[in-house]
Design a protein around this nucleic acid. Structure first.
Length: 740
DNA sequence: ACCTGTTAG
């Protein structure tokens, strides 16, 4: 450790960081107590320096220092930086671990990793016996996994008596966050000390606009306003690049089109102290964009050209673009919200929170002073924007995470110490699903099957189908499908109508090639066709398939195969025999994972879900079953999309007999007992009630209409129809804007 | 009679 005399510029650079002056006191603070909150803005150096300080202070004598990040890229790049600063080979003393990429060895003592990775490690070793210090970073982002880790660490290590359980010495826990919410964190962790490090960012001046007020929460007028503002900035502000925040791909493409048009038609020339800007380089940026196109964003613009990046929220945390001096903030995001009342995830456009607006503004102050132009009014800020974004744990399906907690011995998952507890019905819904998939029993205890299921990085339903298939010896049918369904959508549908037609034709051909009218079978067929192709990437291009997504499906499939293989080595892996054709076998396996997603034809093209919510749904036009009417009365589906209608996507026809025995399970559950607070035996009353209802539904057309009427009435009160109404409103507005 | 943000295992 005799680097202090070094003249290496990197050393002096790290000494210039704001955190350096606090080094000794920080080390002491970690030494003093088991929990510590460290807060500091980006640029304070806490992520790269604190682990090094602790390393120097001897904290690695007894174990590793683990630092979690919510994102893979962050874990990797930070580890690279620190390895460089500590002058060691990446993967030796300093390493990282993310899914599909473990760059750490037995020697690694400073280990950066994703929060999801640490959670999996806890599953294997609840005492975290390899670690002397665990640092949770970016806690203010409130990712689902970080929130769960926070609760687990509090539960298991805050009490000094418990803190050494399964360990020879107590674990130190450091929680790092941006300045907001630190009081809350400290009191959550037993009023532990808070250490504040000043930031090193440049000031950003924010101004409010007049375009979006409290009454415009559903409007899409902001696209035009954002374009106007960008041109304003371009013609009247000094040199420096622009970053525009919008919500989605189509919106971004529209904004870029408008910008091209208008930027050409205006005549301007701005010249102050040789800082001249003459042209505008317009660059869209969103997640599903090809990677090489994304890379273009980071290149500095040609001389005298101003860069204008029009991006989704991907530019708020995931990607950092240098040279941004101006932010234009639409004030909206697209957010995935789970609705437990209808049991669906709905993607909605909503106003951002104030803290998120500050985060966006901060993107202009990375290298020099910046300006942020908010297109919404001060009143909108005060009345429509919440202080903080609702944490993921309160708006997401919890099924997988609850299974993890159960496997960690957290029996009472309702009274688990959540920093912000999710609504009880979210938890109950998760328990119900786990019971339905046989992962837990009637008393809420993890089953043998559940213990196997938790090993898979998948939704429990998909895992259930895989395990069923494996016990029947046909896992090769299910593994690729599960992999394909757990990556982003692999079917590309371009914006231009001509190309759209071409893509649709190709996709229909792929469906036909699979030989059966079953979207899951299409996925399987695509998987193999591409894999056996000589040049998979050109095969994808020709067939309008997302190569990057499919490639990751290949790695996921390999990983799933390995996990399954490991489980099958154990002697108690179940084995079953099935006598029938392959097609039926495949679909029966799918049924064990998707019987919660069964729909029955109601009238005409309308289907009705059988999950107890009784939502009216339509088959999405991208499905090979779209427009297929004959003899198609029962289907299972992978997911639901709420747009102009409620659509089910990735659909498979089934026979009622295949799910007949499973369906009652959807209704017999007593969540009260499942939640481990009940003390009485359940009767079969619920199940009998359901059977009666089901018998009534099985009667022909006349009653089906009655059922539908009843269900529709109920549906009007759900938020699905609210979401649909909002969508239609936005669509109308868009058309009006177009007409203008 | 089609339009889905971001992230993670």
């Amino acid at each position: 450790m005799s680097k202090s005399t070094s003249l290496d510029p990197k050393d002096s650079e790290s000494k210039r960081l704001p955190i350096y002056r606090h080094k000794d006191r920080l080390i002491q603070a970690v030494r003093d107590g088991s929990f510590l909150v460290v807060t500091g803005e980006t640029g304070s150096g806490k992520t790269t320096q604190l682990p090094q300080y602790l390393h120097q202070a001897g904290f690695c004598k007894d174990g590793k220092i683990g630092i979690t990040q919510p994102r893979r890229v962050a874990a990797i790049t930070v580890a690279q930086r620190v390895a460089q600063e500590m002058r060691c080979t990446l993967g030796r003393e300093v390493g990282y671990q993310v899914r599909f990429d473990d760059c750490s060895t037995h020697d690694t003592v400073v280990k950066y990793m994703t929060d999801g990775c640490l959670l999996r490690e806890i599953l294997a070793d609840p005492a975290l016996s390899q670690y002397s210090v665990v640092i949770l970073d970016e806690v203010h982002e409130r990712s689902l996994n970080t929130d769960i880790l926070l609760g687990l660490l509090k539960k298991n290590f805050s009490n000094p008596a418990k803190a050494t359980k399964g360990r020879s010495f107590p674990l130190r826990v450091v929680v790092m966050s941006a300045t907001l919410e630190t009081d809350k964190l400290s009191s959550f962790l037993g009023n532990c000390p808070v250490f504040t490090i000043p930031g090193r960012n440049f000031p950003v001046t924010c101004t409010f606009g007049s375009a979006v007020g409290p009454k415009d929460t559903e409007s899409t007028a902001y696209v035009k306003e954002v374009v106007k503002m960008a041109l304003d900035v371009h013609t009247s502000e000094m040199a420096g690049d622009i970053l525009v925040f919008l919500t989605g791909q189509s919106e971004i493409e529209r904004a870029c089109d408008l910008l091209y048009e208008k930027a050409e038609s205006i005549d301007y020339r701005y010249d102050v102290q040789d800082q001249t800007v003459e042209g505008l380089l317009i660059l869209p940026l969103y997640g599903s964009m090809p990677t090489d196109q994304q890379r273009q964003i980071f290149q500095p613009p040609p001389p005298r050209i101003r860069k204008c990046v029009v991006a989704t929220n991907i530019a708020a945390t995931s990607l950092t673009i240098n040279g941004i001096k101006y932010i234009i903030d639409s004030g909206f995001v697209k957010q995935l919200n789970h609705n437990s009342r209808v049991g669906m995830d709905i993607l909605e456009v909503v106003p951002i929170s104030k803290s998120e607006a500050q985060q966006r503004a901060g993107r202009a102050g990375r290298t020099s002073e910046g300006k942020c132009f908010r297109i919404y009014t001060k009143e909108f800020w005060e009345k429509c924007m919440p202080e903080y974004t609702v944490p993921e744990i309160q708006r997401t399906s919890l099924t997988a995470v609850i299974l993890v907690l159960k496997c960690l011995g957290v029996h009472d998952v309702i009274r688990f110490p959540y920093l912000d507890p999710p609504e009880e019905r979210f938890i109950l819904e998760a328990l119900k699903q786990l019971y339905q998939f046989d992962a837990i029993d009637r008393r809420g205890r993890v089953t043998h099957l559940g213990e196997m299921m938790v090993e898979f990085p998948l939704h429990p339903g998909l895992t259930r189908a895989i395990l069923k298939a494996a016990s029947l010896g046909c896992q090769d049918l299910l593994l690729p499908v599960a992999a394909m369904l757990s990556v982003e959508n692999i079917f590309i549908r371009p914006g231009h109508p001509e190309k759209q037609k071409e893509a649709d034709t190709k996709h229909r051909a792929l469906a036909a090639k699979s030989g059966s009218m079953n979207d899951f079978a299409t996925l399987l067929s695509v998987f193999h066709s591409c894999k056996s192709s000589d040049r998979p990437s050109t095969w994808c291009k020709e067939n309008w398939i997302h190569w990057r997504a499919l490639k990751s499906a290949f790695s996921v499939e390999t990983q799933l195969r390995e996990i399954l293989h490991r489980l099958q080595q154990k002697k108690d892996f179940p084995v079953e025999i099935f006598d029938g054709n392959k097609n039926e076998l495949f679909r029966r396996c799918l049924c064990t994972g998707y019987f919660t997603n069964v729909a029955r034809r109601s009238v005409g093209k309308v289907f009705c879900t059988m999950d107890g919510h009784g939502s009216m749904v339509h088959i999405h036009p991208s499905s090979s079953l779209f427009d297929q009417e004959a003899e198609l009365n029962w289907v299972i589906f992978h997911d639901v999309l709420v747009t102009s209608r409620v659509y089910i996507r990735t659909v498979c026809p089934i026979r009622y007999e295949w799910v007949k025995d499973l369906l009652p399970k959807l209704h017999e559950v007593d969540v009260y007992e499942l939640s481990s607070v009940a003390r009485e035996e359940v009767t079969d009353e619920e199940m009998i009630k359901w059977e009666t209802r089901e018998a009534a539904k099985r009667q022909p057309e006349a009653s089906a209409e009655d059922v539908m009427k009843k269900l529709e009435k109920r549906n009007n009160e759900t938020t699905v129809s609210d979401a649909r109404a909002r969508y239609l409103q936005r669509k109308q507005q868009r058309q009006q804007n177009k007409a203008l």
